[in-house]
């Protein structure tokens, strides 16, 4: 081993300690939710024994189940919608270098730097302004609008890494511009698209703020439904719902990180998230 690597490998004790505490702090509340969702009594401070009664409560609460299904539906439709629109946007922006193109590009990134409450308030005003009744549809429209930017950023990142010669090669081998897009560019983007779609699914499924402002009375997306029951007091049933939500979104996120890696071997959305 060289002197160089030995030096770097001496671990800074303080930083390591902070990191360990950080991870404990990061997972403590999550672990607590999961643990107490299996508590046999209603207490949130003492664990009295294993039970699945809160899950039974959840499953038999038609309202909660409807909300869960609604949330999954919203997330799926939003993921597809944002994927289609965001990819179109990314493809268009990567090729058009005019001033209008750049302006459009900047505008589409605005939702990323706008506090969510502003987007939510604005969407609420827009929908009521044009007379759309607030419902799961309005939630989905707002979520798509908000998620397009994520897809665009990820796809543009992948496109930037792709040589323009690849598309030229397709045209050289007999493709019209549209065929080049369909037969070469899009298939090359598949790993990035999968990652982006799953990421949007996870984000939308968990999103509370936008849904809160744009949903109607019933059925409500799951996070909104949970929010209203939290305000009426803490209940172990929420722990069960929360656990289901955590597991589901963690699963989707893990997929979002892994699938592109398995597929393309080269890039993953993790790289895109970290910018590495």
């Amino acid at each position: 081993m060289s002197a160089r690597s030995r030096r770097v490998e001496r671990r800074p004790a303080v930083a390591v300690a902070v990191t360990v505490v950080f991870f404990a702090w990061l997972y403590l509340p999550i672990a607590a939710v999961v643990l107490f969702s299996f508590n046999s009594v209603k207490s949130l401070s003492t664990f009295r024994g294993f039970s699945t009664r809160w899950y039974a409560d959840f499953v038999h609460d038609a309202d909660l189940v409807t909300s869960l299904v609604a949330s999954i539906g919203i997330a799926a439709v939003s993921a597809v919608g944002a994927l289609v629109l965001g990819t179109m946007l990314a493809l268009g922006l990567s090729r058009i270098r005019s001033r209008t193109g750049r302006a459009v590009g900047a505008v589409t990134l605005l939702p990323l730097v706008t506090p969510e409450i502003v987007t939510g308030v604005a969407a609420l005003l827009l929908f009521t302004g044009v007379g759309l009744k607030l419902s799961l549809v309005t939630v989905t429209l707002a979520e798509i609008t908000f998620s397009i930017a994520y897809v665009t950023v990820i796809v543009r990142g992948r496109l930037a890494a792709m040589s323009t010669e690849v598309e030229e090669a397709a045209r050289d081998l007999g493709c019209t511009p549209w065929q080049a897009l369909r037969l070469v560019t899009l298939p090359t983007l598949v790993p990035a698209l999968l990652g982006a779609g799953l990421l949007v699914f996870a984000l939308v499924f968990d999103d509370f703020v936008l849904a809160f402002f744009t949903t109607g009375v019933s059925p409500q997306p799951l996070p909104v439904r949970i929010y209203s029951s939290i305000r009426f007091g803490v209940s172990p049933a929420i722990n069960a719902v929360g656990t289901v939500m955590l597991v589901l979104s963690a699963l989707v996120m893990v997929l979002a990180l892994i699938v592109p890696r398995l597929w393309g071997r080269k890039s993953s959305s993790l790289d895109l998230i970290t910018g590495a």
């Binding site: 929360g242 979104s249 993790l270």
Partner: peptide, 23 residues
């Protein structure tokens, strides 16, 4: 490790806030 940091953050913000309020 990075995934271990990222995954919980993309899991429900509301649930995690609720967890702290319960804790």
């Amino acid at each position: 490790l990075i995934a271990a940091i990222v995954v919980p953050f993309f899991a429900s913000y509301l649930i995690r806030m609720y967890a702290w309020s319960a804790l």
